[in-house]
């Protein structure tokens, strides 16, 4: 079976993977607060939308108005892509409310109901790119590692069959080199992008590293990452500290 390539539109990142992510893969975007997870995901969605690929962004961590107002600052963002429905932004907390999923911890039935809704939305909108920001916040309500594993596995399998490439953001504490809060997400995901930081002369420099990407002969070198009005840009990180 051969896979197509899903370009992020971030030149240096795509180049590290010989063109982009394998279509249909599920990638964990790992980083602490302020590391650039949301920006990376949005740039991935917007660049896809500009090529006509529909995308959906599920947020749990930020209200919609804040998210869109932050996006307006980026040159890559095009409001019309949201207005014409090429990109759909959904506040998952509203879905929780509508489904009556307000319990602190979900049962298996609750989890299946949530999974069903996400799958229905992806199918109905016929999206080729999907983001959940963050999988950490979503999994907080799942009661066991088995439920988390089952949820991500089923979601990933469904979306892969639909040739939809998925980014799941994973929140970690600062200055740690772990990939998830629950220690399970990284084993199910096809890829891991680690967003970290290095200190130089007291200044913090953002970094990006592809830790894992199934099916691709990818680079593992650490890149310096910059977030400007142009969005995310990368350059090889100087090795000397």
């Amino acid at each position: 079976m051969t896979f197509g390539v899903c370009e992020t539109g971030i030149e240096e990142l795509d180049a590290q993977m010989g063109g982009g992510f394998p279509v249909g893969s599920t990638i964990l975007i790992v980083g602490s607060s302020g590391s650039g997870k949301t920006t990376l995901c949005m740039q991935f969605l917007v660049n896809g939308a500009k090529k006509g690929e529909k995308g959906v962004f599920f947020t749990i961590t930020e209200p919609l108005f804040k998210l869109t107002s932050n996006l307006e600052k980026f040159e890559f963002f095009d409001r019309s892509l949201v207005d014409d429905g090429t990109i759909t932004i959904i506040d998952l907390r509203i879905i929780f409310e509508r489904l009556g999923l307000d319990a602190e911890k979900y049962t298996v039935e609750d989890t299946n109901a949530l999974l069903g809704v996400i799958k229905d939305i992806a199918k109905e909108l016929n999206v080729k790119r999907l983001v959940i920001d963050s999988i950490t916040a979503l999994c907080y309500r799942l009661q066991s590692k088995e439920m988390i594993r089952d949820f991500i596995f089923k979601l990933g399998t469904f979306l892969a069959a639909k040739e939809c490439t998925t980014f799941l953001t994973s929140e970690i504490p600062p200055k740690t080199f772990i990939f998830s809060q629950y220690g399970i997400e990284e084993f199910i995901a096809d890829g891991i992008i680690f967003l970290g930081e290095v200190e130089r002369g007291g200044d913090l420099i953002r970094t990006l590293q592809i830790v894992k990407m199934r099916g691709v002969d990818h680079s593992r070198i650490k890149y310096a990452m910059s977030i400007t009005s142009r969005g995310i840009e990368l350059a090889p990180l100087l090795k000397t500290r």
Binding site: R200, G201, G202, D203, I205, S226, E233, A235, P236
Partner: peptide, 16 residues
Amino acid sequence: IESPTMLERITMEIKH
């Protein structure tokens, strides 16, 4: 550029 320690950022800006 925020700081002269951010050398990679210089590279990115030149490229741009």
